[in-house]
Design a protein around this nucleic acid. Structure first.
Length: 644
RNA sequence: GGACCGGUAGCUCAGUUGGAUAGAGCAUCAGCCUUCUAAGCUGAGGGUCAUUGGUUCGAAUCCAAUCCGGUUCACCA
């Protein structure tokens, strides 16, 4: 009996592996490890629960698959009568049937454990940095994927025993902020969130767009001049660059090298944009900011304040939270000392013009600038500084960065530089890289106005939830505030699930029609399943029936066992999601579990089960399933309603 | 051009430490509400797993080449 309990604490797959290793050792006097054979779930068309594949053992044992299977099957069943009941062998696959007692013990022990599958604290500390917004415009769909991913990954780490510090780095300085500020000064007439009723981040974003429009208008005539060959208004350096670009444009075969043509034109356009009066204003403002000119600082603080208030509202709505927020205006000077030290250690080198670089060509990368010739730091410089600060501040064992895959190269460089500098935490930097969110019509482009705004999409989802709920008319007795909460729960459930169900590293397509569909592989489907189960449990517990300590009745029916097999895999799913930093593992798991329950639900009655023993069993099954659904969805940041 | 990532059903995606006849959801078609919530369930059709070659008992999965798509290689952030 001791041995049986021992098995209960590890997954069935692990138990199986250990049993097989032991049996093989006793049968053939040879040592094997888990890697020498494969354990799979048995395909539904065969009898059994788990399957051991014989082929990989054939070579070292010099026996036929069937011979090994028979010997192993007999030995396993003979020596673990509490775990295995019987076996069959088909074409080299040993299918083992796991005893009903194993499944029922699992249920008995865990059906009421809301922490089932979670691991105790392991003493390791992890920082997860996510949601790094700029303060010049509101959050969009891409940010949502980032935020949901970062938040969920943090929760998954916690469930696996890590202490997690959620952090954000706010990009609150730089030319883009100045753009919004310039336009606001020109056009706003003192408009504020308070006197316009516009959410702060949107208000600032509106002026950013305003700036870009002006910039575009001012760029046109300059482009015309360039195309006419008039370069008299440019600095010697720009004129020189333009000359070369124009030459390139004339020499390349436009029909064959469309891409290169496009790029050359973009380069020309970029120079034209940089030479507009309005751009000069923005640059001047950036200089003034760096000098700390009071009126610029005041405006900057004021407008950033509006943006933070706006972000806060959005974070509250979508349930994002942070333990610490870093601001670039505080961190952008951080890496400077490190650059000096690196220079002294000859890890960096200085070019003639005074700029400082690192040579990464030996590692298959390029030379990378770490400090400009004017002594100011670049993006990567402050990243190095912040990486060190995070470590010194919290002594973290791992530092996770949730950043889009367009920065794969940047993050690779960052980690490499940290390693070369001998920073203690360099090895523990992990870039959780995720793919872009595209629309069915292609990429989101702010210049073309195709960006899906985060607040808008939340509003739309809430409206959709309301519409569906009203059509179905199942919660007519809800109060106004209960309804509001339900719409929120469903809207966010749909959205989070939609964005988290896909493997993070893959580019994903956001289809508006699909995203508001509440059927099939969606959050509301899982939420609905939970509500259904709760409805059963309410009925059962409100009746005269009470939980007894009576025996669960076996044998298990196919669907009962299927559910238990699924439930048994929850801890493994949590572990996989954690080691892969991949919430989609949980989304897929939870969906399959819900699906299995729904099949079970239509086939068998819980409240009106055939016998008291069956009722006992099924009530526990329902409880455990609802607990796991709730627990899994929580890790995705999704709450499950009691009724819907 | 170099580096990295991807290509699985009409669409969106699972499945890759190599395992049995490649799976879901949506969409299409056909059924199921007198029984615990039909936001559900059952069934049908739908595939050259980009292509070609290799590795072996066995390849969507590993290797090589090719084709297609994306990202990146800034004194931008």
């Amino acid at each position: 009996m001791f041995r049986f309990h021992y098995f209960c604490r590890m997954s069935i797959v692990n138990s199986l592996q250990q049993s097989v290793i032991k049996s093989l050792a006793e049968l053939y006097n040879q040592p094997f490890t888990e890697k020498d054979f494969q354990v799979n779930q048995t395909k539904p068309e065969f009898e059994g629960d788990y399957t051991i594949v014989m082929f990989s053992l054939v070579k070292s044992l010099k026996l036929s698959p069937d011979a090994i299977g028979t010997a192993l099957g007999n030995h396993l069943v003979g020596n673990n009568p509490l775990l295995f009941t019987h076996y069959n062998i088909i074409k080299g696959f040993l299918n083992l049937s796991v005893a009903d007692d194993f499944w029922m013990q699992l249920l008995q022990r865990n059906h009421n454990d809301v922490c089932y599958g979670k691991k105790p604290m392991n003493g390791k500390k992890v920082m997860v940095e996510y949601a790094s917004p700029n303060t010049n415009k509101p959050l969009h769909l891409g940010h949502l994927r980032n935020i949901f991913l970062g938040w969920s990954t943090s929760e998954i780490l916690k469930a696996n025993g890590y202490e997690v510090i959620k952090s954000a780095i706010v990009n609150d300085r730089g030319i883009h902020i100045c753009k919004s500020m310039i336009a606001w000064l020109k056009y706003a007439n003192g408009a504020t969130p308070a006197n316009t009723g516009i959410k702060g981040d949107h208000l600032v974003g509106d002026y950013y767009v305003r700036f870009e429009n002006d910039l575009k208008a001012q760029t046109e005539p300059i482009l015309e001049k360039i195309n006419a060959g008039d370069l008299s208004h440019f600095s010697a350096m720009d004129a020189d660059k333009l000359l070369k670009l124009l030459q390139t444009l004339n020499t390349i075969d436009k029909s064959k090298e469309a891409e290169k043509t496009e790029k050359t034109k973009d380069d020309i356009k970029e120079i034209a944009r940089a030479n507009t009066p309005i751009m000069a204003e923005a640059k001047q403002m950036l200089l003034d900011w760096e000098e700390g000119k009071p009126e610029v600082m005041d405006l900057w603080r004021k407008m950033n304040g509006w943006v933070y208030d706006g972000f806060e509202v959005t974070y509250q709505r979508i349930g994002a939270d942070f333990d610490i927020t870093y601001y670039e205006s505080n961190t952008y000077l951080l890496g400077k000392n490190i650059v000096q030290q690196g220079l002294e250690k000859n890890i960096f080198f200085k070019k003639e013009d005074g700029s400082i670089w690192i040579d990464l060509t030996a590692d298959g990368l390029d030379e990378k600038l770490v400090q400009r010739k004017d002594g100011t730091s670049v993006y990567i410089t402050q990243d190095i500084g912040l990486a060190l600060q995070k470590y010194e501040q919290y002594k973290i064992d791992q530092s996770i960065y949730v950043i889009g895959n367009e920065q794969n190269y940047h993050m690779k460089v960052l980690q490499l530089i940290c390693k070369k500098l001998g920073m203690p935490n360099a090895e523990n930097i992990y870039h959780l890289s995720y793919g872009m969110v595209e629309l069915t019509t292609g990429k989101m482009k702010s210049r073309e106005g195709t960006v899906v705004d985060a607040d808008d999409i939340v509003d739309e989802m809430i409206a959709t939830s309301q519409q569906h709920t009203e059509e179905l008319g199942k919660v007519k007795d809800f109060t106004e505030s209960e309804l509001k909460e339900l719409y929120n729960t469903l809207a966010l459930g749909a959205m989070k699930f939609y964005l988290l169900r896909v493997d993070p590293k893959k580019t994903m397509v956001f289809n508006p029609q699909e995203s508001i569909d509440f059927h099939g592989f969606t959050g509301p489907f899982v939420q609905y399943t939970h509500a259904r189960i709760k409805s059963i449990l309410r009925k059962v517990h409100n009746g005269e029936w009470k939980m007894e300590n009576g025996q669960l009745e076996s044998p298990l029916l196919t669907l009962e066992k299927q559910l238990l097999v699924h439930l048994e895999q929850y801890p493994a799913a949590l572990g996989q999601a954690c080691s892969e930093h991949n919430p989609s593992v949980i989304a897929n798991y939870v969906f399959q579990l819900a699906q299995t329950f729904n099949t079970f639900y239509t086939e068998h009655s819980v409240a009106n089960a055939e016998t008291p023993g069956k009722k006992q069993l099924r009530v526990q099954l329902a409880m455990m399933t609802s607990n796991v659904l709730k627990s899994g969805m929580e890790l995705l940041g999704i709450t499950v309603p009691e009724r819907m």
